[in-house]
């Protein structure tokens, strides 16, 4: 059965996505890491759909719709921030920080 290797690959991909979010400062790269995490979850859904029914594959469809919406809005926010700060580094997004 492919379930166990699929869950392993999914866990590694999700962890790589989390690590990328934690150690990068570029907002666009962090967005790509979020997409990586969503894809890792999709792999789990598809792997479990094999033994638990088609609901998993249908849910992947919804995850893709939400990911597309999130990418469009997120990149628009990055564009708006870039216009103010001339940078997409998270270090410059400190408007709410004290001092």
């Amino acid at each position: 059965m492919l379930l166990s290797p699929a869950l392993f690959i999914s866990a590694v991909l999700f962890t790589l996505g989390v690590a990328g979010v934690l150690f990068r400062r570029n907002a666009i790269v962090i967005f790509m890491c979020v997409e990586l995490m969503l894809n890792a979850v999709n792999l789990t859904f598809v792997a479990l759909a094999q033994s638990l029914g088609m609901g998993g594959q249908v849910f992947v469809f919804f995850v893709m719709a939400v990911a597309a919406a999130e990418a469009a809005v997120g990149l628009a926010i990055i564009l708006a921030v870039y216009r103010h700060k001339q940078s997409v580094s998270l270090q410059t997004m400190n408007l709410l920080k004290d001092g």
Binding site: L2, N42, V46, F61, A68
Partner: peptide
């Protein structure tokens, strides 16, 4: 991987959409 897991339609969507 999706193709190998019997999800050919999801694999096509993955390439088209993602």
């Amino acid at each position: 991987l999706f193709v190998l897991l019997d999800a050919q339609f999801i694999a096509a969507l993955q390439i088209l959409v993602y």
